[in-house]
Design a protein around this nucleic acid. Sequence first.
DNA 1: GCCAACGTTGGC
DNA 2: GCCAACGTTGGC
Length: 159
Amino acid sequence: MRYWLMKSEPDDCSIDDLAAMPAQTVPWYGVRNYQARNFMMHQMAVGDPVLFYHSSCPEPGIAGIAEVASPAYPDATQFDPTSRFFDPKSRAEQPRWFNVDVRFRRKTRLIGLAELRQRPELANMRVLARGNRLSITPVDPDEWRFITEQLLDAKAHER
DNA sequence: GCCAACGTTGGC
DNA sequence: GCCAACGTTGGC
């Protein structure tokens, strides 16, 4: 099992939007970067836990927890000429873009970017790397544990 | 709106 | 295969 961080613009799909979806699940369409696509195609497995991250918004940061809910399958928007994700070069016999489904687990307090950056335990987090623009990044098990057990567990702070 | 960083495109 | 130009991401 691997851990992931997936960015979403809350104007598009916030953690609340995800929770309000039918079956609390959404196709992660619109990824047009090969590295991110390859993560979905080759490395994700159903049930993998996901940090749901709000980007390009007033308060960027981790806003909830989700999980991978399907294997990768062709992204429907690449074939839809009315979609802003339409890709005229992609062919139905050999689709270029794939997505998984993502299912809501829970909403968390917002852990802002500044807080993430200030934690020495997270200094090597992929999403924090200089110049990182990947919308999907792997999360180390240690980083996952620190975030869920230390930053998100109120009782852990009291100890 | 600015701009640093990076990926993609396309001419050669 | 190189690399300049261009487009996009995303924090600020």
